[in-house]
Structure formats: C-alpha cells, structure tokens
C-alpha cells in the first residue's frame, strides 16, 4: 500500500492525542495529577496539546478525502463500517473531552463532572483508536493488516506516545515522579516488543492468495503475466502497488526501534542518573525521537503491506 503522509500524520497525531488524554484522565481519577497549585498549569498545557493533536489529526484525515465538504455523511453507517464508527466516536468523544478540559481550566471544583468526563474521555479515546486499528484489521485483501496483532499495536503505541508526551510536559513544569518515568519507558519498550512480534508474525505469515488462485488459471499450471492491460500505472497500481525493498524495510525497522526505544531509554537513564539543565533539551529530543519513530513505523505499516490486487498485475503471491 502506498503510504499517504496525511494518513500517517493522522494516525500518529490523533493516536498520541487520545493516548495523552487517556493518561491525563487516568491520572486525574487516581489523584496523581489534579488541577491543584502544582498540577494546574502543566495539566492545562498537556490537555490543550492533546486536543490540538486530535483535531489536527482529524483535519488531516478529512482533507485527505476527495470531498471534505461531505465528510458529515461518514457518521451514518456505523452499523457496518469501522471508518464510520471511528467518525461517530471521535465526534461524540469531543463532548467529554470538552467538558474535561473546560472543567480543568475553569471549574476545577466540580469534581463529579470532572470525574464523569474523565471516565468518558478514557472510554471514547480508547474506542476511537481501536476503530482506527479495526479499519485496517478488517481489510481481508491485505494480510499484513488483517490479523489480530494490529489493534493491540495501535492501542499500545497510542498509549505509549501519549504517556511520553505527558511525562515530557510534566517534567518541564516541575519534576515528574521517577515511577512515572520508569513506567512510561517500560510501556514504550513493551509496545515495541509487541511490534517486533507483529513483524515476526507477519513476516512468517503464509500467503493467502496467489496469481493462480486470483485468476483461477492455476488449473492450467504456473501463471505469469504476459501483458498488463495498460502501458502506464493506473490508480490501483499507484494506490496499492507500492513496493519497498526488504533491505530498505529492515534498515527502517532498525532505525524505528533505535529512535523509538533505545534513544529514549538512554535519555531517561541520563536524566535519572545525573542532574543538570540539559534535561529539558534531552526530554524534548527524546519525545521528538519517539514521535518520529512512530512515523517511520506507520510508514512501514503501509509500505510493507501487500494488497492481493497486485496478483493480477504479476505478483506471485500475497
């Protein structure tokens, strides 16, 4: 599948935004991070950042449409379509998110409302990310997407990147608790292990279809394409015929793990072990590195995924 930058940005940004809001809600409910004298300002910054990430992501995915002005129609088919469900949940989720952010900023004394909206924010955030993942996991013609590893990886990266941003904001304002830092790093590394398992699984996956089963000509023997129907690439080949060399993909995978897990570990180690003003810059570098690694991961998610339609254009098996 051809990686579209708008979709990569959308899934990474809105995933991080929803993860961030989820953690802020959890921290509020658990009384770790409340709008008190110490937590109010960093909390407000983190909440606004979360909203910006979500809205920017949703806008990016909407601009990707051929007819953005008709986007409201996508809220109608939630009975069958994961994309529609995602749209519905993202829209409905804006209500508790608005209440939670508004409550934090202007009505921190209304604890019941804040608690209810925090709870609803968690539910809507996680279910929206799950719908995003299910859009991909439900597509049978793309074996690398149509497997049970995809939703946990999506959810995991949303939560991990959200936690990293939350930690970064908190550490900027004052000092984030050590347990928070170590917990975040453990989550991040855990999700990367999950991703590595996903790669192992999808690399070892048996092909579901062949050029012979796609055309039915396997009844005659081995088949090869003699002539394509057209001389230049058409929509199908441009959208679904993207191929990334294995060598290239392996290098990018290593780079993603390095930037997404190894570098943040070093940064955190350095912060916990030493004292100094460089911590702020290191934190920023670490957070940016995690976000960039997720963009690489998402690019690979598209680039490595083969669509069975390529079989008609000469691919041997998918």
């Amino acid at each position: 599948m051809t990686p579209a930058y708008s979709v990569i940005f959308f899934t990474v940004a809105s995933g991080a935004g929803y993860g961030l809001l989820t953690w802020l809600s959890v921290a509020y409910l658990a009384n770790w991070w409340t709008p008190n004298a110490q937590g109010f300002v960093p909390g407000a910054i983190a909440l606004c950042l979360g909203v910006v990430l979500i809205v920017a992501g949703l806008m990016s995915s909407m601009l990707h449409l051929g007819h953005p002005e008709r986007a409201w129609r996508a809220l109608s088919q939630w009975r069958t379509s994961w994309l529609s469900r995602e749209g519905v949940l993202a829209t409905l989720g804006l209500i508790p998110i608005t209440l939670f952010v508004g409550g934090w900023l202007w009505a921190p004394e209304r604890i019941l409302m804040l608690r209810m909206s925090a709870l609803a924010t968690i539910v809507f955030s996680l279910s929206t990310v799950l719908c995003t993942a299910m859009i991909y996991a439900s597509l049978k013609p793309i074996p690398r997407w149509h497997n049970p590893w995809v939703p946990p990886v999506y959810l995991g990266f949303a939560l991990a990147s959200g936690a990293v941003i939350a930690m970064c904001v908190r550490a900027f304002a004052d000092t984030a608790p050590t347990s928070f830092m170590i917990g975040t790093l453990a989550l991040l590394i855990g999700v990367w292990i999950l991703k590595i398992l996903y790669w192992r699984h999808s690399d070892a996956q048996d092909s579901t279809s062949t050029i012979g089963s796609a055309t039915g000509l396997d009844a005659l023997g081995d088949i090869t394409q003699l002539d394509a129907p057209h001389t230049a690439a058409n929509y199908l080949q441009k959208e679904m015929g993207f191929v990334v060399a294995r060598k290239h993909a392996t290098r990018l995978r290593r780079m993603a793990i390095l930037l997404g897990a190894a570098l943040p570990s070093l940064v955190l180690f350095e912060i916990l072990m030493t004292e100094g003003f460089l911590h702020d810059i290191l934190l920023l570098i670490g957070t940016a590195s995690v976000m960039f690694s997720l963009c690489i991961e998402r690019w690979l998610f598209f680039a490595e995924a083969k669509h069975v339609v390529t079989l008609f254009y000469g691919e041997k098996s998918v």
Partner: peptide, 30 residues
C-alpha cells in the same frame, strides 16, 4: 507519456509456464 484514467474493465494477458499447455496465452478481462 503516462496516461491515466478511470476504466471499469481491464484486460490482462497471462501465460502458462508449466503443465500440459505450457506457453499458452490466456486473455483475462477483469
């Protein structure tokens, strides 16, 4: 140089490389 456009019907051509009919061309509308 690289024309593109919407078509509802595409005709591929395949060739058998093994079996009794090896080397046979099969035209395949899709």
């Amino acid at each position: 140089k690289e024309p593109d456009g919407v078509w509802f019907n595409r005709v591929h051509s395949y060739e058998t490389r093994s079996g009794k009919d090896a080397g046979r061309t099969v035209h395949f509308p899709r």
